[in-house]
Amino acid sequence: MTEVILALITGTIVGFLFALLKLPIPAPPALAGVMGIVGVYLGFKLFHWVVPMLKDMF
């Protein structure tokens, strides 16, 4: 959980600095882009959950 909190704090600081320096944000500018990233992560986690179960079945 500490890792998640540190990542959130770091991301907030980076986002603030990018806005301060008037640079484009280094992340998807729309909710659809963010959800795409979340989907990639969930697919990765799903793979690592399903494959061991399939190996146990066969």
Rank of each mutant, 00 (worst) to 15 (best):
20 L>W: 09
7 A>G: 06
37 I>M: 07
28 P>C: 00
30 A>S: 15
16 F>Y: 11
37 I>N: 04
3 E>H: 12
32 A>D: 09
32 A>Y: 08
43 G>N: 00
21 L>A: 09
50 V>L: 10
6 L>R: 13
22 K>V: 10
51 V>N: 07
48 H>M: 11
50 V>W: 05
51 V>H: 10
29 P>H: 07
44 F>M: 10
7 A>K: 06
26 P>E: 00
3 E>Y: 15
31 L>D: 08
16 F>A: 09
56 D>Q: 14
1 M>W: 14
25 I>R: 13
52 P>K: 04
44 F>S: 09
14 V>T: 07
8 L>V: 12
29 P>R: 07
23 L>S: 06
30 A>Y: 15
31 L>G: 08
30 A>D: 15
43 G>F: 01
26 P>G: 00
41 Y>N: 13
19 A>Y: 09
26 P>C: 00
12 T>Q: 04
53 M>C: 10
10 T>N: 12
54 L>C: 07
23 L>V: 07
29 P>G: 08
28 P>F: 01
35 M>S: 06
12 T>V: 07
48 H>Q: 11
58 F>R: 12
9 I>H: 02
41 Y>W: 15
53 M>R: 11
43 G>T: 00
41 Y>A: 14
44 F>D: 06
18 F>Q: 00
58 F>Y: 13
37 I>H: 05
44 F>E: 05
12 T>H: 04
1 M>D: 12
35 M>Y: 06
44 F>T: 09
2 T>C: 13
43 G>S: 02
21 L>V: 09
54 L>H: 07
52 P>I: 03
22 K>R: 12
53 M>K: 10
1 M>N: 15
17 L>E: 03
46 L>H: 05
23 L>P: 02
32 A>L: 11
17 L>N: 03
55 K>M: 12
57 M>I: 12
28 P>S: 01
24 P>G: 00
26 P>L: 00
9 I>T: 04
41 Y>C: 13
1 M>P: 11
23 L>I: 05
50 V>H: 06
38 V>W: 03
30 A>F: 15
8 L>D: 07
54 L>Y: 08
39 G>K: 02
32 A>N: 09
29 P>Q: 08
36 G>Q: 09
58 F>V: 15
10 T>I: 15
5 I>T: 08
51 V>E: 10
31 L>R: 11
48 H>P: 02
33 G>H: 02
15 G>C: 02
21 L>N: 08
40 V>L: 08
50 V>P: 01
5 I>P: 00
48 H>V: 09
15 G>R: 03
48 H>N: 12
